[in-house]
């Protein structure tokens, strides 16, 4: 295994981690504001579908990205209605939205495009392709720095750069701005926020909107950047993994990035190990490798990470005193 191999695996790690990072940060805003969001999976799926549909119809990746955000906003809106206005159970609402996304995307996709739930294949100019940073091609042959720069730093889609950038922005918003302070407060003690004369409902909806924007971009990444069209159930549990990453990262942005990269790395190694024969063990069965991230998540959640304490008011609807 030489440098090129390592660079390739690491670059693949970043690519695979991109939707996780976006979904994880999305969940961070929502849960910090006191809204539990099991529905990340469904939102990823819904936005992947709306983005791929609009990309196929209009040919514009930017419109498609907007559509992806729109799809996630729609689902976030229903979640908000259920959990903020009607004070329903947020976990149930999230689970319902996941099923809704799974059913609706395949159903609408099948009746609109008649391809068994797949949307039409997108061409390169309808997608967010890899970007070449300046001098990437020229530096490629320089030893050590060349492959690292052109393979590991350059060559991702615009969305990946955005996802990485979203981490410091989130950290800044959360811990350095008035909005962030209020956001954290509303997840810990909504009554205090209410007493201070700030609307709990408004703050929570604002958090849900940010959640939808981020997870919507993450969903769009699946279908119009990493993939070239929508495939039924293409989120494949990433929403849940992102949620587990969020718990593992204790609802903090920088650890969230690290955990998501770790899951991305596992996934990259998993793809790499398929079909390779090991001495004594032989070929590792595909299923054993595929199941690795899930088992790891279970082990991590079982508390080998110290106790993860959720925002205190997470999952509780707020009722104003009358």
């Amino acid at each position: 295994m030489d440098l090129i191999d390592i660079v390739n695996i690491l670059a693949q790690t970043v690519r695979l981690a991109t939707p996780l990072i976006l979904a994880c940060l999305a969940g961070l805003y929502s849960e910090r504001a006191g809204i539990v969001d099991i529905g990340l999976e469904g939102k990823l799926l819904a936005s992947a579908f709306t983005a791929a549909t609009v990309a196929a119809l209009t040919g514009s990746p930017w419109l498609a990205l907007l559509a992806g955000i729109g799809g996630a906003l729609l689902f976030s809106g229903v979640h908000g209605l259920a959990s903020i206005n009607f004070k329903g159970n947020q976990t149930i609402s999230g689970v319902a939205l996941n099923f809704l996304a799974a059913g609706l995307t395949t159903y609408l996709g099948t009746s609109w495009f008649k391809r068994g739930g797949f949307t039409p294949q997108l061409s390169a100019d309808q997608r967010f392709g890899p970007l070449q940073l300046p001098f990437a091609a020229e530096l490629r042959n320089v030893p050590i720095i060349g492959p690292i720069y052109s393979g590991l730093i350059s060559g991702y889609s615009l969305i990946t750069y955005f996802a990485i950038l979203a981490v410091p922005i989130t950290a800044w918003v959360l811990f350095r701005t008035r909005f962030g302070l209020r956001l954290r407060a509303v997840g810990e003690n909504p009554k205090a926020i209410d007493t201070a004369g700030i609307s709990v409902t408004l703050l929570r909806y604002q958090a849900l909107i940010i959640t939808a924007v981020l997870v919507g971009i993450g969903g769009a990444y699946l279908s119009i950047a990493a993939g070239a069209g929508f495939i039924p159930n293409m989120a494949a549990g990433r929403g849940y993994i992102a949620l587990a990453a969020l718990i593992f990262a204790k609802w903090k942005p920088w650890p969230a990035l690290l955990v998501c990269l770790m899951f991305g790395f596992l996934d990259a190694v998993q793809l790499r190990l398929q079909g390779i024969k090991f001495p004594y063990i032989g070929e590792i069965p595909v299923q054993a490798i595929q199941v690795l991230p899930y088992i790891l998540t279970v082990i991590l959640l079982a508390g080998f990470i110290g106790r993860a304490v959720a925002p205190k008011a997470a999952g509780l609807p707020y009722t104003k005193e009358r």
């Binding site: 149930i92 099923f99 609706l104 159903y107």
Partner: peptide, 18 residues
């Protein structure tokens, strides 16, 4: 898939928005 959709709507309206 339409059945899955209806199933989701039932969970949403009887469970979360009951």
């Amino acid at each position: 898939e339409m059945i899955v959709t209806i199933q989701a709507l039932v969970i949403l309206f009887t469970g979360a928005m009951g």
